[in-house]
Simulated assay, not measured.
Amino acid sequence: MAIPDFQSVMRPVLQAVGDGVPLPLSALRVRIADVFKLTEEERKERLPSGNQTVINNRVGWARTYLNKAGLLTIPNKGMVQITVRGREALASGPERITVSWLKQFPEFADFHTAKPQVIDAAAVVDSDLAETTPDEQLAEAYQALQQSLADELLAQVRAATPSFFEQVVVDLMIAMGYGGSRKEAGKATQLTNDDGIDGIIKEDKLGLDVIYLQAKRWANTVHRPEIDKFIGALTRKRARKGVFITTSDFSTGAKDAALGLDIKVVLIDGIELARLMVEHNLGVSVKQVYEVKQIDSDYFSEE
């Protein structure tokens, strides 16, 4: 069975504590996973942030919403207990408790509508219909923004001049910790006039090893002959490491050519190039920072 959305989890959460006995949140999470017969893989599936499992996050938000609606109480840290209103919801409420249904309770309505005014309301997910938790919606929005940024960044690189693309390659290698100083890296990546190699860059500041580079600002797919030519040039140089960077992509044959060699050859296509540029803050700047905070349980520990 697939991992249920957090609204589908709400009634089972109430049922799990229906006997009125306070239940640890950790035990509640296990019970809900058992109710939905989740596989071991599904129980371990994590949010895009990697900070928490999906099912634990959804149970946590279900608990929060039910608590804000007065159907659950949190008698002690990490505990959950049903209320009289919660019992009534089990007895006469719907089979699937939703955000819309919870809005009949004034305290929940106040909680749910207490948010800053949004300029573009059409762009906001309707939380009454959403199947994901706020954490997941935030992560999905972040990933969408990152993908859009990477696409725009790659378009800019493809439209740049060959000399600027060479600078991008140098700056990226430096940002990733290679090449020593900017001046040294710039010299190292000047054309070597060796068929199949565009430049050489130090692997570290001491120059204990070097990396041979090939950079192609292409729109068309890079095929195997280009990789074979690069590998041949590396072999003639007795090189051990090479990086082939393109703004396009690699054919299956090209990827296969780089496998199973004594020489380590890394292929970086346009998508990976843009991702690395974003990761290392190359050609991008921080637009806005949001901090998502949580309770520091250690602060409240009296032990």
Rank of each mutant, 00 (worst) to 15 (best):
G196L: 09
K202N: 10
I227G: 11
G260E: 08
A219N: 09
R158Y: 11
A257K: 09
I32R: 07
Q146W: 07
S285R: 15
I211W: 06
N281A: 10
F108T: 00
V278N: 13
R96S: 08
D34Q: 05
S301T: 08
E42C: 00
Q190D: 03
L213P: 10
G196M: 10
D151A: 13
L138A: 13
Q137D: 04
L23G: 06
T113E: 08
V278S: 12
Q117E: 15
G93P: 09
S92P: 05
N56V: 02
R11G: 13
V265R: 01
A89N: 06
V59G: 04
T133L: 09
L14E: 00
A215N: 14
E302K: 04
D151N: 15
G186W: 08
R87G: 04
N51M: 04
E95W: 07
P106R: 05
D120S: 06
Q137G: 08
D110W: 05
A239C: 02
L206D: 05
V80S: 09
I231F: 04
R46C: 01
E107F: 05
K293E: 13
I231W: 06
A2K: 07
T64N: 10
D135I: 09
H112F: 09
A159L: 09
L259Q: 10
D5W: 06
A274M: 08
D195V: 03
V157L: 08
L145P: 00
Q81T: 05
D198E: 10
L25A: 14
I82G: 01
A69L: 11
L261F: 08
S148E: 15
M10Q: 14
A33M: 07
A215D: 09
D128N: 11
L191S: 14
T235K: 01
S181R: 01
D128G: 02
A89D: 00
V278Q: 11
V54P: 05
T73A: 06
D171H: 09
R240N: 00
G283I: 11
P12D: 08
V30L: 10
S285T: 11
I245S: 09
Y212F: 13
F250I: 12
P116T: 04
N76K: 14
M10E: 13
A258Y: 14
R31Y: 12
A185Y: 11
K183S: 07
D19N: 15
V30I: 13
R58Y: 06
V210P: 01
V17E: 04
K37F: 06
E203I: 12
K264E: 02
N57P: 01
A239D: 01
D298P: 11
D204H: 10
L14Y: 00
D198S: 02
Q81K: 13
S163L: 03
T53F: 01
A254C: 12
A254P: 03
D228F: 02
R43Q: 13
G78L: 00
A109W: 05
V17K: 01
A91T: 04
H223C: 07
S49F: 02
V21P: 00
E184H: 07
T53P: 02
G18S: 15
F6P: 14
Q143F: 12
T132N: 09
G60L: 03
V168W: 12
I245F: 04
S297D: 15
F105N: 05
R275V: 12
F300C: 00
